[in-house]
Design a protein around this nucleic acid. Sequence first.
DNA 1: CCTTGACTTGGAGTGACTCCAGCCGATTAC
DNA 2: GTAATCGGCTGGAGTCACTCCAAGTCAAGG
Lengths: 121, 121
Amino acid sequence: MRISEAADACGLSADTIRYYEKSGMIPPIRRDASGRRRFSAADIDWLTLIYWLRETGMPLRQMRRFFTLAQGGPETIPERRQILTDHASELQRRRENLDKCDAVLAIKIASYDQPKPKVTP
Amino acid sequence: MRISEAADACGLSADTIRYYEKSGMIPPIRRDASGRRRFSAADIDWLTLIYWLRETGMPLRQMRRFFTLAQGGPETIPERRQILTDHASELQRRRENLDKCDAVLAIKIASYDQPKPKVTP
DNA sequence: CCTTGACTTGGAGTGACTCCAGCCGATTAC
DNA sequence: GTAATCGGCTGGAGTCACTCCAAGTCAAGG
């Protein structure tokens, strides 16, 4: 797979993939004879996970940590699991924020329908 | 109210409030004799709305647009309402993303518990 | 009067991209 | 066969939304 196909497959842009490779959040991608990246299915899997972590706001620092651990052996699994479960709790917090914001928006929008509530009309 | 109190009240940092004032997303705040900002209750209300919009990822460009409209008369209400309802749909999209990411995380976490599914053992 | 602490400004630094110039190699068009 | 086009390469500049800092002002407390 070439970078444009990889980008389509995982949802990240080609620029972002190159940037992630440069900054060590994904393994160095294999190159063909003319120096172009060729992505394996495993690369795509990794990029897809990264895509979802990013999409829900995981900082790159933490992704990098996760990647470094994944390079190590299975003894790093507990910490990897911890990072993912921590992120899952973060998602819960975000969901609550969305709810709160929904409420604020609903109140604000409603206030446009009843623009000036008179005091004892 | 002074800036530190305003920051506590709305959830934004003092630096962020100053930045938002500089870049025209909130009205210029009244100053006291020695040039310090004094925040009214209306200022805090505005900042609190801004806080929730930002917290759920509204770009500053759009907040600025919304603020500019709010400076205008009630004839800008339809567009203001539109911005808020658009943002509410965006929140819905984000909520779906969170769900999707939850699923991806659950699968990944589960894979640590059953690390190597043997093919017909 | 001196210190402390909260505030002011302008400007530099950061994270995470995003875009672009200028180059190279492969494919297609004539 | 060679010209044009396409996709990809690198390094570096630009952007967005802060965040931090230096250097200065001002007010209150001891």
